[in-house]
């Protein structure tokens, strides 16, 4: 597999192809590199993180090429941050559950949000694993090239523990 581009986003900022491009937080990155998708503000934190990483990575990729791409992501905490927030809305006896939070209590929603935004119709999957095990992640991505022949794959680690601990380490790879 060949890596086309790689991005890393943590609370310290965003690094694209080895160069620091911004020290903004996730919403700041959205305003800097997207800014035209109001649905961003309705997303949970994991989706926002994946969304801005994908925005930056996919900026110069043609619509035609994106159509047949795949998205394969991995993390440790699944959607736990949002699960906790949702649980807080149903903790009291006289509770009002939040439908808008509930829809994000699944980690793989982020793959759908990215696919909708970029009109990606290929395979999307999300694996929950103990740690960023690079050989395992690459083996799974390589397997996708054998089964569905995507034009490229957006893949990597996307984990949101809390507002001070999150990491997106995503890349675009070709066969």
């Amino acid at each position: 597999m060949t890596t086309i581009a790689e991005i890393s986003i943590t609370p310290a900022g965003a690094i694209l192809k080895g160069r620091l491009i911004s020290t903004a937080d996730i919403t700041g990155l959205y305003r800097e590199f997207a800014g035209d998708y109001p649905k961003f503000f309705k997303m949970d934190s994991l989706c926002k993180l994946g969304f801005v990483a994908a925005e930056i990575l996919l900026k110069d990729i043609s619509a035609e090429e994106k159509e047949n791409a795949a998205i394969i992501l991995f993390n440790r905490n699944a959607s736990l941050f949002t699960d906790r927030n949702y649980q807080a809305t149903i903790r009291d006896n006289n509770y009002f559950p939040s439908p808008a939070l509930f829809v994000y209590t699944l980690a793989n929603i982020v793959t759908g949000e990215i696919a909708i935004r970029h009109k990606i119709y290929g395979e999307t999957s999300f694996y929950v694993v103990d740690s960023p095990d690079t050989p395992l992640m690459e083996e799974i991505a390589a397997g996708a090239f054998l089964t569905s022949s995507p034009s490229f794959i957006l893949t990597g680690w996307l984990d949101y523990d809390d507002d001070h601990h999150y990491e997106a380490k995503l890349k675009l790879v070709r066969k």
Partner: peptide, 13 residues
Amino acid sequence: SIDALELIVLLER
């Protein structure tokens, strides 16, 4: 549609 559900919750709350 999710916003519609939120509005229903808002009216009750």
